[in-house]
Protein backbone atom coordinates (compact mmCIF):
# COMPACT_ATOMS: atom_id res chain seq x y z
CA UNK A 1 0.00 0.00 0.00
CA UNK A 2 3.05 2.22 0.12
CA UNK A 3 3.20 2.71 -3.61
CA UNK A 4 3.35 6.32 -4.77
CA UNK A 5 1.07 7.37 -7.58
CA UNK A 6 2.64 10.81 -7.95
CA UNK A 7 6.21 11.49 -7.06
CA UNK A 8 7.76 14.95 -7.32
CA UNK A 9 11.53 15.03 -7.05
CA UNK A 10 13.45 18.30 -6.74
CA UNK A 11 10.91 20.04 -8.92
CA UNK A 12 12.01 23.44 -10.11
CA UNK A 13 9.73 25.49 -12.26
CA UNK A 14 9.85 29.07 -13.44
CA UNK A 15 8.19 31.30 -15.96
CA UNK A 16 10.28 33.40 -18.28
CA UNK A 17 9.27 36.68 -19.82
CA UNK A 18 7.30 35.87 -22.93
CA UNK A 19 8.53 38.67 -25.14
CA UNK A 20 12.03 37.35 -25.66
CA UNK A 21 13.77 34.07 -25.50
CA UNK A 22 16.10 35.52 -22.92
CA UNK A 23 17.53 32.78 -20.84
CA UNK A 24 18.96 35.23 -18.34
CA UNK A 25 18.41 33.88 -14.86
CA UNK A 26 17.27 37.27 -13.61
CA UNK A 27 14.17 37.15 -15.84
CA UNK A 28 12.96 33.94 -14.33
CA UNK A 29 9.97 34.00 -12.09
CA UNK A 30 10.40 31.00 -9.87
CA UNK A 31 7.33 29.11 -8.76
CA UNK A 32 9.12 26.13 -7.24
CA UNK A 33 12.69 25.53 -6.19
CA UNK A 34 13.57 21.95 -5.41
CA UNK A 35 10.13 20.83 -4.35
CA UNK A 36 9.71 17.27 -3.10
CA UNK A 37 6.43 15.51 -2.61
CA UNK A 38 4.86 12.11 -3.01
CA UNK A 39 1.26 11.05 -3.01
CA UNK A 40 0.44 7.56 -1.86
CA UNK A 41 -1.88 5.37 -3.88
CA UNK A 42 -5.44 5.34 -2.57
CA UNK A 43 -4.99 8.39 -0.38
CA UNK A 44 -7.05 11.57 -0.22
CA UNK A 45 -4.71 14.53 -0.13
CA UNK A 46 -5.77 18.15 0.05
CA UNK A 47 -3.44 20.90 -1.07
CA UNK A 48 -4.18 24.20 0.62
CA UNK A 49 -2.76 27.56 -0.11
CA UNK A 50 -3.44 31.18 -0.76
CA UNK A 51 -3.84 32.52 -4.30
CA UNK A 52 -0.59 32.43 -6.21
CA UNK A 53 1.14 29.97 -3.90
CA UNK A 54 1.68 27.56 -6.79
CA UNK A 55 -0.90 24.95 -5.95
CA UNK A 56 -2.52 24.99 -9.40
CA UNK A 57 0.89 24.97 -11.04
CA UNK A 58 1.74 21.91 -8.98
CA UNK A 59 -1.48 20.22 -10.08
CA UNK A 60 -0.65 20.90 -13.71
CA UNK A 61 2.67 19.14 -13.29
CA UNK A 62 0.91 16.02 -12.14
CA UNK A 63 -0.51 15.16 -15.54
CA UNK A 64 2.08 16.70 -17.76
CA UNK A 65 0.25 19.88 -18.73
CA UNK A 66 3.32 21.68 -17.49
CA UNK A 67 6.75 20.12 -17.60
CA UNK A 68 9.41 20.68 -14.96
CA UNK A 69 12.28 23.06 -15.69
CA UNK A 70 14.39 21.04 -13.30
CA UNK A 71 13.91 17.85 -11.35
CA UNK A 72 11.43 15.10 -12.19
CA UNK A 73 7.76 14.36 -11.79
CA UNK A 74 6.63 10.75 -11.95
CA UNK A 75 2.93 10.13 -12.47
CA UNK A 76 1.56 6.59 -12.37
CA UNK A 77 5.14 5.40 -12.79
CA UNK A 78 5.82 7.43 -15.95
CA UNK A 79 8.19 10.35 -16.20
CA UNK A 80 6.03 13.31 -17.25
CA UNK A 81 8.84 14.60 -19.45
CA UNK A 82 8.57 11.45 -21.57
CA UNK A 83 6.53 12.45 -24.61
CA UNK A 84 5.59 8.93 -25.59
CA UNK A 85 3.92 8.31 -22.22
CA UNK A 86 1.78 11.44 -22.41
CA UNK A 87 -1.53 9.71 -23.06
CA UNK A 88 -0.78 6.97 -20.57
CA UNK A 89 -0.17 9.60 -17.92
CA UNK A 90 -3.32 11.48 -18.77
CA UNK A 91 -5.50 8.39 -18.71
CA UNK A 92 -4.04 7.33 -15.36
CA UNK A 93 -4.04 10.73 -13.73
CA UNK A 94 -7.22 12.63 -14.62
CA UNK A 95 -7.78 16.28 -13.99
CA UNK A 96 -10.92 18.21 -13.08
CA UNK A 97 -10.97 21.99 -13.35
CA UNK A 98 -12.74 24.81 -11.65
CA UNK A 99 -15.37 25.79 -14.16
CA UNK A 100 -17.56 22.85 -15.17
CA UNK A 101 -18.92 24.79 -18.15
CA UNK A 102 -15.52 24.95 -19.77
CA UNK A 103 -14.83 21.24 -19.44
CA UNK A 104 -17.94 19.81 -20.99
CA UNK A 105 -17.43 19.23 -24.70
CA UNK A 106 -20.65 17.64 -25.91
CA UNK A 107 -24.28 18.73 -25.77
CA UNK A 108 -25.53 15.49 -24.24
CA UNK A 109 -24.36 14.27 -20.84
CA UNK A 110 -23.52 10.74 -21.94
CA UNK A 111 -21.72 11.93 -25.08
CA UNK A 112 -19.53 14.14 -22.95
CA UNK A 113 -18.83 11.32 -20.57
CA UNK A 114 -17.74 9.21 -23.53
CA UNK A 115 -15.41 11.88 -24.93
CA UNK A 116 -12.23 10.60 -23.30
CA UNK A 117 -13.04 7.02 -24.23
CA UNK A 118 -13.71 8.04 -27.83
CA UNK A 119 -10.31 9.69 -27.89
CA UNK A 120 -8.67 6.59 -26.49
CA UNK A 121 -10.33 4.45 -29.13
CA UNK A 122 -12.23 2.24 -26.71
CA UNK A 123 -14.55 -0.24 -28.37
CA UNK A 124 -18.24 0.69 -28.50
CA UNK A 125 -19.80 -1.89 -26.20
CA UNK A 126 -17.06 -1.43 -23.63
CA UNK A 127 -17.51 2.33 -23.93
CA UNK A 128 -21.24 2.06 -23.29
CA UNK A 129 -20.56 0.05 -20.14
CA UNK A 130 -17.95 2.39 -18.79
CA UNK A 131 -20.02 5.51 -19.50
CA UNK A 132 -23.01 4.08 -17.64
CA UNK A 133 -20.78 2.97 -14.81
CA UNK A 134 -19.10 6.38 -14.50
CA UNK A 135 -22.42 8.23 -14.54
CA UNK A 136 -23.78 5.91 -11.86
CA UNK A 137 -20.66 6.47 -9.78
CA UNK A 138 -21.34 10.22 -9.62
CA UNK A 139 -25.10 9.75 -9.30
CA UNK A 140 -25.92 11.35 -12.64
CA UNK A 141 -27.15 8.32 -14.56
CA UNK A 142 -30.77 9.43 -14.65
CA UNK A 143 -29.65 12.59 -16.46
CA UNK A 144 -27.66 10.78 -19.14
CA UNK A 145 -29.76 12.16 -22.00
CA UNK A 146 -29.99 15.71 -20.66
CA UNK A 147 -28.11 18.64 -22.09
CA UNK A 148 -25.56 20.25 -19.75
CA UNK A 149 -27.48 23.52 -19.95
CA UNK A 150 -30.34 21.97 -18.02
CA UNK A 151 -28.13 20.99 -15.09
CA UNK A 152 -27.11 22.87 -11.97
CA UNK A 153 -23.48 23.78 -11.31
CA UNK A 154 -22.94 20.87 -8.95
CA UNK A 155 -24.48 18.45 -11.41
CA UNK A 156 -22.33 19.79 -14.24
CA UNK A 157 -19.21 19.35 -12.14
CA UNK A 158 -20.25 15.78 -11.39
CA UNK A 159 -20.67 15.17 -15.12
CA UNK A 160 -17.17 16.56 -15.64
CA UNK A 161 -15.90 14.17 -12.96
CA UNK A 162 -17.74 11.29 -14.62
CA UNK A 163 -15.96 12.16 -17.87
CA UNK A 164 -12.68 11.60 -16.04
CA UNK A 165 -13.78 8.49 -14.13
CA UNK A 166 -14.80 6.86 -17.40
CA UNK A 167 -11.09 6.65 -18.23
CA UNK A 168 -10.71 4.63 -15.02
CA UNK A 169 -7.79 6.68 -13.75
CA UNK A 170 -5.86 5.67 -10.65
CA UNK A 171 -5.71 9.23 -9.50
CA UNK A 172 -7.85 12.33 -10.01
CA UNK A 173 -6.36 15.75 -9.48
CA UNK A 174 -9.04 18.34 -8.81
CA UNK A 175 -8.17 21.99 -9.17
CA UNK A 176 -10.68 23.83 -6.96
CA UNK A 177 -13.64 21.86 -8.25
CA UNK A 178 -16.09 23.56 -5.91
CA UNK A 179 -14.92 27.16 -6.23
CA UNK A 180 -17.69 28.18 -8.61
CA UNK A 181 -20.49 26.22 -6.97
CA UNK A 182 -23.18 27.09 -4.48
CA UNK A 183 -23.19 25.37 -1.06
CA UNK A 184 -25.53 22.60 -2.24
CA UNK A 185 -23.32 21.97 -5.27
CA UNK A 186 -20.22 21.88 -3.07
CA UNK A 187 -21.75 19.26 -0.82
CA UNK A 188 -22.76 17.12 -3.82
CA UNK A 189 -19.28 17.28 -5.29
CA UNK A 190 -17.53 16.63 -1.98
CA UNK A 191 -19.76 13.63 -1.35
CA UNK A 192 -18.87 12.30 -4.80
CA UNK A 193 -15.16 12.85 -4.16
CA UNK A 194 -15.28 10.99 -0.85
CA UNK A 195 -17.17 8.10 -2.41
CA UNK A 196 -14.65 7.83 -5.23
CA UNK A 197 -11.84 7.79 -2.71
CA UNK A 198 -13.69 5.04 -0.87
CA UNK A 199 -13.66 3.05 -4.12
CA UNK A 200 -9.89 3.26 -4.18
CA UNK A 201 -9.25 6.26 -6.44
CA UNK A 202 -6.43 8.49 -5.25
CA UNK A 203 -7.65 12.06 -4.87
CA UNK A 204 -5.55 15.19 -4.90
CA UNK A 205 -7.84 18.07 -4.05
CA UNK A 206 -6.56 21.59 -4.60
CA UNK A 207 -8.67 23.96 -2.57
CA UNK A 208 -8.76 27.01 -0.41
CA UNK A 209 -11.81 25.90 1.48
CA UNK A 210 -10.74 24.73 4.94
CA UNK A 211 -13.80 22.64 5.60
CA UNK A 212 -13.19 20.67 2.43
CA UNK A 213 -9.54 20.17 3.24
CA UNK A 214 -10.54 18.93 6.69
CA UNK A 215 -12.24 15.95 5.03
CA UNK A 216 -8.98 14.65 3.53
CA UNK A 217 -6.56 12.13 5.06
CA UNK A 218 -3.64 14.42 4.55
CA UNK A 219 -3.33 18.17 4.17
CA UNK A 220 -0.44 19.91 2.47
CA UNK A 221 -0.17 23.64 3.05
CA UNK A 222 1.76 25.63 0.49
CA UNK A 223 3.10 29.13 0.59
CA UNK A 224 5.20 30.83 -2.10
CA UNK A 225 5.99 27.54 -3.76
CA UNK A 226 7.10 25.79 -0.59
CA UNK A 227 5.39 23.14 1.45
CA UNK A 228 5.12 24.55 4.94
CA UNK A 229 2.89 21.93 6.54
CA UNK A 230 2.24 18.33 5.56
CA UNK A 231 0.32 16.19 8.01
CA UNK A 232 -3.03 14.83 9.08
CA UNK A 233 -5.73 17.54 9.01
CA UNK A 234 -6.09 17.59 12.79
CA UNK A 235 -2.37 18.32 13.17
CA UNK A 236 -2.22 20.86 10.35
CA UNK A 237 -5.16 22.93 11.56
CA UNK A 238 -3.86 23.07 15.10
CA UNK A 239 -1.18 25.46 13.79
CA UNK A 240 -3.66 28.30 13.80
CA UNK A 241 -1.09 31.12 13.94
CA UNK A 242 1.07 29.74 11.18
CA UNK A 243 -1.93 29.29 8.90
CA UNK A 244 -3.08 32.82 9.64
CA UNK A 245 0.36 34.19 8.81
CA UNK A 246 0.15 32.78 5.26
CA UNK A 247 -3.33 34.17 4.76
CA UNK A 248 -5.30 31.02 5.43
CA UNK A 249 -8.15 30.30 7.76
CA UNK A 250 -8.92 27.28 9.87
CA UNK A 251 -12.20 25.35 10.00
CA UNK A 252 -14.79 27.13 12.13
CA UNK A 253 -14.74 24.44 14.81
CA UNK A 254 -10.98 24.74 15.19
CA UNK A 255 -11.28 28.49 15.33
CA UNK A 256 -13.78 28.27 18.17
CA UNK A 257 -11.58 25.84 20.10
CA UNK A 258 -8.57 28.08 19.50
CA UNK A 259 -10.33 31.20 20.76
CA UNK A 260 -11.62 29.36 23.82
CA UNK A 261 -8.15 28.08 24.57
CA UNK A 262 -6.80 31.61 24.33
CA UNK A 263 -9.45 32.75 26.79
CA UNK A 264 -8.28 30.18 29.26
CA UNK A 265 -10.46 27.15 28.64
CA UNK A 266 -8.84 23.76 28.46
CA UNK A 267 -9.78 22.89 24.89
CA UNK A 268 -8.12 20.79 22.22
CA UNK A 269 -7.27 22.65 18.99
CA UNK A 270 -7.01 19.34 17.17
CA UNK A 271 -10.73 19.40 16.62
CA UNK A 272 -11.75 20.03 13.03
CA UNK A 273 -15.32 18.80 12.67
CA UNK A 274 -18.55 20.05 14.11
CA UNK A 275 -19.52 16.90 15.93
CA UNK A 276 -16.40 16.59 18.05
CA UNK A 277 -16.54 20.34 18.58
CA UNK A 278 -20.06 20.02 19.94
CA UNK A 279 -18.95 17.12 22.15
CA UNK A 280 -16.04 19.15 23.49
CA UNK A 281 -18.34 22.06 24.30
CA UNK A 282 -20.72 19.66 26.00
CA UNK A 283 -17.89 18.32 28.13
CA UNK A 284 -16.80 21.83 29.13
CA UNK A 285 -20.33 22.81 30.06
CA UNK A 286 -20.71 19.61 32.09
CA UNK A 287 -17.45 20.06 33.94
Amino acid sequence: MNEDIVKVENLTFYYTNDDEESEAASDRKYVFRELNLSVEKGSFTAVLGHNGCGKSTLAKHMNAILLPCGGKVYSAGFDTADDSALFDIRSHVGMVFQNPDNQIVASVVEDDCAFALENMGVEQSEMRRRVDEALKAVGMYEYHLHSPGQLSGGQKQRVAIAGIIAMRPDCIVMDEPTAMLDPAGRREVMKTIRRLNGDGVTIVLITHNMDEAAQADRVIVMDKGNIILDDKPTEVFSNVELLRSVGLDVPQSTELMYLMKKSGFDTDVHIIDEESCANALFDILNA
Binding site: R90, G94, V105, A116, N119
Partner: peptide, 8 residues
Amino acid sequence: LAMECRCY
Protein backbone atom coordinates in the same frame (compact mmCIF):
# COMPACT_ATOMS: atom_id res chain seq x y z
CA LEU B 1 -6.79 22.16 -21.73
CA ALA B 2 -9.66 20.02 -20.45
CA MET B 3 -9.84 18.25 -23.83
CA GLU B 4 -6.13 17.54 -23.75
CA CYS B 5 -6.48 16.13 -20.26
CA ARG B 6 -8.99 13.73 -21.68
CA CYS B 7 -6.49 12.45 -24.21
CA TYR B 8 -7.85 14.36 -27.20
